[in-house]
Structures are given as C-alpha cells and as structure tokens.
Amino acid sequence: MYPIATNAGAPDIFTHLDLALVLGRIGYLGGLQIGPVGWVGYDMRGAQIGLAHVVDGRAEGLEFDGIFSIARGDFAGAQIAGLMGWTSGRMTGLALAGMASYVDADVDGVLLGGFVSVARGKVRGLQMAGGTNIGRVDGLQLGVVNVSAEVRGVQIGLINVARRIKGVQVGVLNITDKLEGESLGLLPIPRRGGVHPVIWGSNSIFANLGVKFASAYAYSILGIGLHNRPLPDGKRQPAFTAGLTLGARVPITEGFAVAGDLAGNRLFAEGVPLTTHDELYKARVLVSFEIAKRLVPFIGGGVAMAVQGSDSLRFSLLPEGTAGIEL
C-alpha cells in the first residue's frame, strides 16, 4: 500500500507493471496495473484490473473493476465497472457499468448503464440503460425512460422525451417539442398540435368520444363510447366501451388524407363479469378533409368482429360504417 512500495518517494514513476496488495500509486502506466485499488497520476496505456481504479490523465486500453472505474481525461478503449464508470473527457469505445455510467463529454461508441447512463456531450452510437438514459444521441437510445435534447436516429423506451428528434420515437409515451420524423406509440405527443378531441359514431358503437395523439403519419386514440350489446336471445343490452385505436395517416392532396387503423374495445355491461370475453375489434379505412386547423370531418368503413363468452367463444362479423369530426 503506497507509500509502502518499491517506488516510495517516486509517485510519478513510469512503469510497465504495477502489482499491489492494497493500493498501487504510479505516475505513468505502459502495461498492466493489478490490485484492489490502483491510481495512475498521469497517462495510462494498457490495462487496470481490480476493484477500483483511477486515471488522472488520458487513458487508452482497458479499465476492468468490480466496483468503480474513473478516468479524469479522455478515454479510448473499454471501461467496465461493476457499479459505476466515470469519464471526465471524451469516451471512444465502450463504457459499461452495472449501476451507472457517466461521461462528461462526447461518446463515440457504446454507453451502457444497468440503471442509468448519462452523457453530457453527444453519443454517436448506442446509449442504453435498464432504467434512464440522458444525453444527445446520433444513433440509438434504448431504455425504460429516455431524455434527450436532440436525437438523430431512433429512441426506444416506455417513456421518450426529446426536445428535437430527426428520426423515430418508439414507446408508450412519446413527447417531443420539434418532430422531424415519426413518433410511434400509444401516446405520441408532439408539443405543437399533437393532441385532438375526436367525436364519432358508427353502426357498432353509436356514440364515441376520444382523444387523438397524432404525429406526422401515425396516431393513436383513447376513447369511450355507448354500445347496444347483442344477447344470445336476440335482444340488446346497453353497455359502455373503452378502447384503443392505432393507425396511420397518409396525405393525398392539400386538405385530403386517407387513414387506416385497428381498434380494440372492451364492453362493460351490467351483470357481465370482467373475466368473460366481451370485446369488439375493428379494422377501418377513413377519408378526411381539413376544413380548418381544428375542424377535420372524416368518413369511412370497414369490418367489426364481436367476441363474447367464457368457456366457449362466440364470434360475429358485421360491416362497419363510421363518420365523425376531429377538433
């Protein structure tokens, strides 16, 4: 444990091999440093292996530690840590940590964190975490929650937030201030004009009210409605519905657009347990015309399929005609 060492009184020595039982302290490394804790005061070219290692200067090669790895300058190579990896300069290569990876500058390569990965600069390549990613990305950002000032590429997660995106967002909740591409999700919310109330009716569910979350071409609708549920004896029973619609819209000419979507609706009626199948599925083709920015009537049709029963299911098909207005 330094200063109880062969380089006592010479902490800035250059060496090809540093072997420590507790703490190794050298100035420059051009080879291998092994021990529970290692510290290189200036530059490192080679490998550090142990529980925790620090490089105060530039690092080239491998840091492989069971607890944490720290590089206070630029790093080129692979930094692998059981808990936390930290690079204060530019990272070129691979940064992987079981809990958290942090780079204070740009990343050219792969940044991986078990729970969180943070890049203060731009990631050119892949940023991935089992929990949250924070950083600007040219490439792929993959995690449960992704937060980015700018994405040029693909952002995939349950929750995606980007101030600006040129590419594709894929997730459950997608929020962006400026979208130049496509947002695919249950709730895509471009901040400017991406949420619209929708009112429509059809021969299957006669009264519907929903909220449409639209991006450039894709959209989703969360809706509720009123339905006359058919009974086995031929009679009908009033029911409420709750459903989700996923679709795509293609502009044809100025004002006119064609859309196609798929919808699933659950029916809720008195005396019908939730364990029983009582759903209505639809496939539609729609034509719309934009009279004004918040006044878009549409009309279309398709097919609807009712699924009812518990032990034995009953299926019935009927044509679907629909008309409504998007506000």
Rank of each mutant, 00 (worst) to 15 (best):
P297V: 04
R294Y: 15
L142G: 04
M305Q: 14
L231A: 11
D65R: 00
G193T: 00
G35M: 01
L280W: 00
W39D: 02
I67H: 03
A47I: 06
G9W: 04
V250K: 06
F68G: 15
G130L: 12
G139C: 06
G234I: 07
V107K: 07
G57T: 14
Q48W: 02
P190S: 13
V110Q: 04
R45T: 15
V161N: 08
I199A: 15
I221A: 05
M91A: 15
N160E: 12
W200H: 10
M91E: 11
A323Y: 11
L209Y: 15
E290V: 09
I205S: 00
R136G: 03
G31R: 00
P11T: 08
F289M: 04
A78W: 05
G113E: 10
S202K: 11
L286K: 03
I205H: 06
N265T: 01
A242E: 10
S183K: 02
G66F: 12
L19T: 12
V250S: 10
D43L: 04
G300I: 07
R72G: 02
K178D: 15
F240L: 11
L209D: 09
I70C: 03
A97D: 04
V170D: 07
I221Y: 01
G61R: 11
G201P: 07
A81E: 08
L23P: 00
M99Q: 13
G73A: 06
V161K: 08
R164H: 13
L62D: 07
T275N: 11
T245S: 12
Q169D: 09
G324Y: 13
L179S: 06
S220M: 04
K293S: 14
L244M: 10
G125E: 12
G264A: 14
V137L: 06
Y219H: 12
G113W: 03
L142F: 15
S215V: 08
A5F: 05
T132F: 02
L126Q: 02
L295S: 14
A269F: 11
F298N: 03
E180H: 13
P251D: 13
N146C: 01
I205Y: 08
N133I: 01
L280T: 02
G113M: 03
L186S: 08
D104L: 05
V54P: 00
V296E: 13
P297G: 15
V272F: 08
L83P: 01
Q169A: 05
V303L: 10
G243M: 03
P11V: 09
G193D: 14
K293L: 05
D106I: 07
P36A: 09
I80V: 15
I159M: 13
V145N: 09
S69C: 04
G157N: 09
G73K: 10
I67A: 12
P232R: 09
I175Y: 09
